[in-house]
Amino acid sequence: MNVLWTWIAAGLTLAIFSFLYKDNPFYKFAEHIYVGSSAAFWFIYLWYFDIKPKLLDAWVMNTGFEKYILIVPAILSVMMLTRFIPQIAWISRWAIAFTVGMGAGLGITGALQGFLVPQVQATMLPLWEPVSSSTLYNLGHSLNNLLLVLGTITAIFYFYFSREHKGGLGVLSKIGITFIMVAFGASFGYTIMARVSLLIGRIYFLFHDWLHLV
């Protein structure tokens, strides 16, 4: 049975890889199986890991406030289903508005506490910091701090929208976008390395598990 599944997995892997040449019936076949089975999987997943435990089972097991608060998400869910009835489809907007409002509210505090404030604190670095007896080491350390501070401040100027980027602001924003692009370049190389390791994993599956060549 395992051999059969290995052949199916290898066949589907090759069918997906065939897209590198051009769109073809093998790719279409694998793509439709993938999209269809993943959509079905997520439907089952949502039922067993969201709707059943968090709504139905929780309704049976909880008492008092914890039980009756479940009426709110249940009503919002039913509101979403009104989209199937064109005459009252507008009711679904209320559920969407609730989700969007909640997301925006949570996003503000999350971004503030998770990114903004820690970033503000991390940028307050001394431009001269004697951390070692070696002057050369101290110079290197201080230069590193200077680059971090300069990169952060000029990158903020790049995202300043209220004035045209000309003159002094233009110079600062150009330095800022240069820092951003250097960071993106490093990130690009790092991520490509990770993708290559994923490819190696798939090639290894074909040559080891399927063809037994390595």
């Binding site: 307050m124 001394p126 903020i156 929208f161």
Partner: peptide, 27 residues
């Protein structure tokens, strides 16, 4: 957008105060 831009300038001012104090603290 205007409010965000003013806030960004405010943060730059905060950075500069913080950097100055941290440099003095280190020295």
């Amino acid at each position: 957008i205007k409010a965000e831009d003013v806030a960004k300038l405010g943060f730059i001012a905060v950075f500069l105060i913080g950097i100055l104090l941290e440099t003095l603290a280190a020295i």
